[in-house]
Design a protein around this nucleic acid. Structure first.
Length: 894
RNA sequence: GCCGGGAUGGCGAAAUUGGCAGACGCCCAGGACUUAGAAUCCUGUGCCCGUCAAGGGCGUGCGGGUUCAAAUCCCGCUUCCGGCACCA
């Protein structure tokens, strides 16, 4: 098929030749207003004061070489509109911007281009900044921050030390100074701490040397180092957090992640599981994000039970203690320490082989093979403590060491995985839960029955119903001392070590006596300025190869080696929103007065992809700093909203694609501004669809908002009223004011509700009303001027350039952006009449204009007299009439 | 597999949460202005029957249901997009 080249019908490109001052040519004035606003520091935020505050924040962007696309503008424009709106409402507004500048993409790009990541970031962020200015975003640039500067990461390190020097006391449900733990250990050991991470008596503790104490405290510190199997990305040559592994691959490199045993730094976020779940109820976030966090934390309530084995008590976790009597064997994870102890000589070879193979598999391989269960018998047996039955112990890789206790009891009849396993290995199956209304038969069952029912074959519990079974059995186990209630969480501590150069150095020195934290006064531990910083394949940070960095002598003369891992960038973004409250502070991370005034963030906007990473980590840091008395709030982000993605306008295989540089379908704000101006772009970003919805870009739609702004321009700067037109009647004047104030209400409500698309459509409607009014009658000057003035003020947050230009052409005092938001008059907005929709048997048969407050009888009388309605009622009997005042009447006839 | 969220004209979408489906735009068609085009303005525009009429029927992914009344609530599917994934 032949394609014709479409001419671009609408365009406002300025050419010097046809410059007409009456015409709307945004390119003629937008840039100079940006300059003036900046000169005048129009958007500079004041420190804490008496006014109510509004903190409106976008997710901390990672500046990339590609710059911003029109898709990125989708969140920056609405937050800017909100900020401008709040300024006009008299709020003290904080609307800042900065750069999440550390991390792999910049470092990898810099290595490739043989340059320095700092230089790249400077270049990329300058481009972002240029684009933000281009589209009129009102950031207070005096508060700009860059997480890779020593002035910033000094305080990231400081917060790291706060965590390092703290532990979580389950008795207080809060973090406390580690020194208080040390005191307690010296007096009473760990004996008074419920479920301590490690046991110690006071005598033992007091006999410990420096190094032993240091190592012991690692079991409690909120920032700790531990050798563990980690997700190793062989392409980026670094460790990844669990959240950064997607389908077994590194989220940035896409490489298959390997398991590697390395000493790593962690933050003990799991201590906050319960609070992270509970406090979700106190914040205004999208439900699906809350749900994702809950699922990620993965709380399950059940019981732990000790089975008797030759190697000692074997502890399992189950959410179904009511099925204990149905256990027909046990399964250990291949890495479980009991495997070695329990395997009998004649099974040793097979078991060792199986364990070796499992350990070699990646997570993906394990999962892929997951449908077909594998496993081997150890040769040993365990005794089920509830019925003294002897059951075989197997090893199978569908059991994970990292969840629960790494060991399970297998109840084949009531768990699908175990059912499959039992069928495959011809193990016995026993029904211990009978569903209501049917009878399960262990021999003929084709699938497990994992649901509720009545307990059978369960000794003293036969006949117990599902509603109470778990609680009663758990209590019984506790009474007999063979088990206890236990809560398990899926998620694990947050691994922050990165074996890379471009990140915040971890402020720890390793000495012969153990770890020595860098003193706060000697921060920052600066990243050395070096030429070569390529990652090593060994799992060692490139910093380890720099002797000047590594070798240190502590103030007391002790020689040490600096920690050479750096922190993953989620550390930087876990507190940047606090730094914005007091970004220049050289003496501390922030002044508590400022941070407690501005925080929590009132409205936080960004993509849903950070649901379980940044948003969980930031909440965790906030809670720790709260516990330590540094800040006075427990949740960082009061209201969260996620923008929908903007897709490429081209259909491919019946779908709209994501914009990406590799597909060559990226549309930039630069080209759109060049063609239509920034204001039309802003309006279209709002108008395109519901804020949360993914939607394709349509440049023709942008042409539509440009046309609308042109009509507004012509209306507001238009000619004097036509003297030939009749004077407006009282009714017309009332009607005009009604439209005006209804729109005002709608715009305010919708801005607050993030319904930006309908903000634009209602302003378009108002524009149409005003243009029509202008062509119909001459309105009193006061009425007309007030209408135009109100429209312009409503437009100011949306189209800031145009609003300022018109304001200035009207000869009003600079600046429109320092004006008050117009006052809403509810009386003026009130309707005097309404349209009554008349239905007969549910079908619309007529409409009637009636005064508000008309009586039901009168409405009926008039409705039944309507010819269109009458026609359908003739010869029928009225069965019922439903009347919804102000709306609708439905007559049911037969 | 489990858990979320969607599906509305040719296109992007609205719909006060049970009360006129399609606001507001785009596209398209016809007209005005113009030497002509662009821009602008006016009119029309869910589908079908009907002479472009009057009028009527159908219509919010599909199939049922509740209700005087369903895009909206309930049950069962299809499909797309996210998330989780042997979690005991």
């Amino acid at each position: 098929m032949e394609t014709t080249i479409q001419e671009r019908p609408v365009s406002a490109q300025a050419t010097a030749a046809n410059a007409d001052p009456a015409k709307y040519v945004p390119q003629d004035f937008e840039a100079s207003w940006t300059q003036k606003w900046e000169q005048d520091e129009l958007y500079k935020t004041s420190p804490a004061d008496e006014r109510p505050k509004a903190y409106i924040l976008d997710f901390f962007p990672y500046p990339s070489g590609d710059g911003l696309s029109v898709g990125h503008c989708r969140n920056y424009v609405p937050t800017d509109v909100l900020s401008r709106y709040y300024r006009m409402k008299g709020y003290n507004v904080l609307h800042p911007m900065g750069w999440d500048a550390f991390g792999l993409p910049a470092e990898n790009a810099a290595i490739k281009m043989k340059t320095n990541p700092a230089r790249l970031i400077a270049q990329y962020s300058a481009n972002y900044k240029r684009q933000f200015r281009l589209i009129g975003i009102s950031f207070d640039w005096s508060r700009e921050i860059n997480s890779s500067t020593p002035e910033y990461y000094r305080w990231t390190q400081w917060i790291f030390l706060q965590l390092y020097h703290a532990w979580y006391d389950p008795r207080l449900n809060a973090a406390r100074p580690i020194s208080e733990l040390e005191n307690e250990l010296g007096v009473s050991g760990a004996g008074n701490i419920p479920n301590p991470h490690a046991e110690v008596t006071a005598e033992q503790w007091n006999s410990f040397g420096k190094k032993e104490r240091s190592e012991f405290l690692s079991n409690f510190r909120l920032a700790y180092r531990k050798a563990s199997f980690v997700n190793w990305d062989p392409v980026d040559k670094t460790v990844l957090a669990n959240e950064e592994v997607v389908d077994g691959r590194g989220w940035r490199s896409g490489a298959l992640v390997e398991k590697k045993l390395l000493p790593q730094w962690f933050f003990r976020i799991t201590e906050y599981s319960e609070r992270l779940i509970n406090d979700l109820d106190t914040i205004d976030w999208p439900d699906h994000i809350k749900l994702m966090q809950r699922n990620w934390i993965g709380k399950s309530v059940g019981a732990q039970v000790d089975f008797v084995t030759d190697a000692g008590p074997l502890r399992i976790f189950t959410t179904r203690p009511d099925t204990l009597w149905g256990a027909t064997f046990m399964v250990l994870a291949p890495e479980h320490p009991f495997v070695e102890k329990l395997v009998t000589p004649q099974h040793k070879a097979r078991v060792n082989q199986y364990v070796k193979e499992s350990k070699a598999k990646t997570e993906v391989e394990r999962a892929e093979e997951g449908k077909e269960k594998t496993g081997v018998f150890t040769g040993s047996y365990a005794v089920n403590p509830v019925n003294d039955e002897r059951i075989p112990i197997w090893v199978a890789d569908y059991v994970m060491l990292t969840y629960g206790t790494g060991a399970i009891m297998a109840v084949h009849a009531h768990d699908q995985r175990e059912f499959e396993f039992a069928r495959k290995f011809k193990l016995p199956i026993r029904v211990v839960i009978q569903p209501q209304g049917e009878t399960l038969d262990a021999d003929t069952m084709e699938r497990a029955f994992p649901h509720d029912g009545v307990m059978v074959n369960s000794g003293p519990f036969d006949g117990t119903g599902a509603d109470v079974a778990v609680a009663q059995v758990t209590q019984w186990l506790e009474g007999k001392g063979i088990g206890a209630k236990r809560i398990n969480y899926k998620f694990r501590d947050w691994g922050i070590s990165r074996q890379r150069y471009w990140g915040t150095p971890i402020p720890i020195v390793h000495t012969a006596d153990g770890e020595a934290p860098v003193s706060p006064e000697s921060l920052p531990v600066e990243l050395p300025d070096v030429n070569s910083y390529e990652p090593t394949a060994t799992g060692e940070s490139p910093l380890a190869t720099i002797p000047e960095f590594v070798n240190v002598t502590l103030p007391d003369g002790t020689p040490g080696r600096r920690e050479t891992d750096t922190m993953g960038t989620f550390a930087c973004s876990s507190w940047y929103y606090m730094r914005f409250a007091d970004p220049q502070n050289q003496a501390r991370a922030f002044d508590p007065k400022e941070v407690n005034y501005w925080l929590p963030v009132d409205t936080y906007v960004g993509g849903a992809e950070h649901a379980v990473m940044h948003l969980l980590y930031a909440r965790f840091w906030t809670k720790v700093l709260y516990d330590l008395g540094i800040i006075s709030f427990v949740e960082p982000f009061q209201r969260l909203r996620n923008q929908g993605m903007i897709l490429s306008p081209q259909l491919k295989d019946g779908k709209y694609e994501k914009m990406s540089k590799s597909k060559g379908n990226v549309i930039t704000p630069d080209e759109m501004v060049e063609q239509f101006g920034a204001d039309a772009l802003r309006a279209y970003e709002m108008f395109i669809s519901d804020f949360t919805m993914a939607t394709p870009w349509q440049t023709d739609g942008l042409a539509g908002t440009f046309r609308w702004l042109t009509r507004v321009w012509n209306l507001l700067l238009g000619a004097e009223p036509n003297p030939d037109l009749p004077a407006a009647t009282d009714e017309q004047i009332k009607s005009l004011r009604r439209s005006l104030h209804q729109t005002l209400k709608k715009v305010e409500d919708d801005v607050n509700d993030f319904a930006f698309n309908t903000v634009i459509s209602s302003l378009m409607s108002l524009t149409n009303v005003l243009i029509r009014a202008q062509d119909t009658a001459t309105y009193p000057t006061a009425v007309w001027d007030n209408a135009l003035n109100t429209l312009l003020l409503m437009l100011a947050p949306i189209a800031p350039f145009m609003a300022e230009e018109i304001w200035s052409r009207w000869g009003k005092a600079y600046s429109v952006h320092q004006q008050k938001w117009p006052a809403y008059d509810a009386a003026a907005a009130k309707e005097e009449a309404f349209t009554l929709v008349i239905q007969v048997n549910g079908k619309v048969r007529g409409k009637l204009e009636l005064p508000v407050g008309v009586s039901e009888d009168e409405a009926k009388e008039k409705a039944f007299a309507e010819p269109g309605v009458k026609k359908w009622m003739e010869g029928k009997t009225i069965e019922r009439v439903t009347y919804v005042p102000g709306r609708l009447m439905n007559v049911v006839v037969k």
